[in-house]
Measured scan of single mutants.
Amino acid sequence: KFNKERVIAIGEIMRLPNLNSLQVVAFINSLRDDPSQSANLLAEAKKLNDAQAP
């Protein structure tokens, strides 16, 4: 279950337009470290993406 959620979360994070490459890598590394947190990490990535919108 967590592996599928992690793959989906990674794909979504990679498509967030307002994150820089270091932020994307940090979120992906966090997902690798704890796949059970996929939903929480994706939500945090989306919040950061929205906050950094031009």
Rank of each mutant, 00 (worst) to 15 (best):
K1N: 15
K1D: 15
K1E: 15
K1G: 14
K1L: 08
K1R: 09
K1C: 12
K1Y: 11
K1I: 12
F2C: 12
F2L: 13
F2H: 14
F2R: 04
F2D: 05
N3G: 05
N3V: 05
N3A: 06
N3T: 06
K4T: 14
K4G: 09
K4L: 05
E5F: 07
E5C: 08
E5A: 06
E5N: 07
E5H: 05
R6C: 15
R6L: 15
R6M: 15
R6N: 15
R6H: 13
R6T: 15
R6S: 15
R6G: 15
V7A: 14
V7P: 04
V7N: 08
V7D: 15
I8W: 11
I8R: 13
I8L: 12
I8Y: 12
I8M: 09
A9W: 08
A9R: 03
A9S: 03
A9N: 02
A9D: 03
A9E: 03
A9M: 06
A9P: 02
A9G: 03
I10D: 01
I10V: 07
I10R: 03
I10P: 01
I10H: 03
I10G: 02
I10W: 03
G11P: 01
G11R: 11
G11S: 12
G11E: 14
G11T: 09
G11L: 09
G11I: 10
G11C: 11
G11V: 09
G11D: 09
E12L: 13
E12M: 12
E12I: 15
E12Q: 13
E12T: 10
E12P: 01
I13L: 07
I13S: 00
I13R: 00
I13W: 01
M14T: 07
M14K: 09
M14N: 04
M14E: 04
M14I: 10
M14F: 05
R15V: 05
R15W: 03
R15T: 07
R15H: 07
R15N: 13
R15M: 07
L16H: 02
L16V: 00
L16M: 12
L16Y: 03
L16C: 02
L16W: 02
L16T: 00
L16A: 01
L16Q: 02
P17W: 04
P17S: 09
P17F: 05
P17K: 10
P17T: 08
N18I: 00
N18A: 04
N18R: 02
N18Y: 14
N18G: 03
L19F: 02
L19Q: 00
L19E: 00
L19V: 01
L19S: 01
N20H: 12
N20C: 05
N20K: 09
N20P: 01
N20R: 07
N20Q: 04
N20T: 14
S21V: 13
S21N: 11
S21P: 12
S21R: 12
S21G: 10
S21I: 13
S21E: 12
S21W: 15
L22R: 10
L22V: 12
L22E: 12
L22P: 05
L22W: 06
L22Y: 13
L22D: 10
L22C: 12
Q23A: 01
Q23L: 03
Q23W: 02
Q23D: 03
Q23R: 01
Q23I: 05
Q23F: 02
Q23V: 02
Q23K: 01
V24K: 14
V24H: 03
V24L: 08
V24M: 09
V24P: 00
V24A: 05
V25C: 07
V25L: 11
V25F: 13
V25A: 13
V25K: 10
V25M: 13
V25S: 14
A26L: 09
A26D: 10
A26P: 01
A26E: 12
F27Y: 06
F27M: 07
F27N: 00
F27T: 00
F27S: 01
F27G: 00
I28F: 04
I28T: 04
I28Y: 03
I28A: 03
I28N: 02
N29I: 09
N29E: 10
N29D: 09
N29Y: 05
N29K: 07
N29F: 13
N29L: 08
N29C: 10
N29Q: 11
N29S: 14
N29W: 08
S30P: 02
S30V: 13
S30A: 11
S30F: 12
L31V: 09
L31S: 02
L31D: 00
L31W: 04
L31A: 04
R32M: 15
R32S: 14
R32K: 14
R32C: 13
R32D: 15
R32L: 14
R32Q: 14
R32I: 13
D33N: 11
D33L: 14
D33W: 08
D33H: 13
D33E: 10
D34R: 05
D34P: 01
D34E: 09
D34H: 14
D34I: 04
D34A: 07
P35C: 15
P35Q: 08
P35T: 06
P35G: 08
P35A: 13
P35R: 04
P35W: 14
S36D: 03
S36A: 11
S36R: 07
S36T: 05
S36N: 06
S36E: 12
Q37L: 12
Q37V: 06
Q37W: 06
Q37G: 15
S38K: 03
S38E: 03
S38T: 08
S38Y: 15
S38A: 09
S38I: 15
S38F: 14
S38R: 04
A39P: 04
A39L: 12
A39V: 07
N40S: 13
N40C: 08
N40Y: 10
N40D: 12
N40V: 07
N40G: 07
L41P: 00
L41I: 14
L41E: 02
L41K: 10
L41A: 09
L41Q: 04
L41Y: 11
L41D: 01
L41W: 06
L41S: 03
L42I: 06
L42F: 03
L42S: 03
L42D: 00
L42E: 03
L42V: 14
A43F: 09
A43Q: 10
A43D: 12
A43Y: 12
A43W: 09
A43T: 11
E44T: 08
E44C: 08
E44G: 05
E44R: 08
E44V: 10
E44K: 13
A45R: 00
A45T: 00
A45V: 02
A45Y: 04
A45F: 03
A45H: 01
A45E: 01
A45Q: 00
A45C: 02
K46Y: 10
K46H: 10
K46F: 07
K46I: 12
K46M: 07
K46N: 06
K47S: 10
K47P: 00
K47L: 04
K47T: 11
K47Q: 12
L48V: 09
L48R: 04
L48H: 02
L48M: 08
L48A: 05
L48F: 04
N49Q: 01
N49R: 00
N49K: 01
N49S: 07
N49W: 01
N49L: 01
N49H: 02
N49V: 02
N49G: 02
N49P: 01
N49T: 00
D50W: 09
D50N: 12
D50V: 09
D50A: 13
D50M: 11
D50P: 00
D50F: 11
A51V: 11
A51Q: 09
A51W: 10
Q52K: 04
Q52E: 02
Q52I: 04
Q52D: 02
Q52C: 08
A53P: 06
A53W: 07
A53M: 09
A53R: 10
A53G: 12
A53D: 11
P54Q: 10
P54V: 13
P54E: 11
P54S: 12
P54L: 07
P54K: 08
P54H: 07
P54C: 13
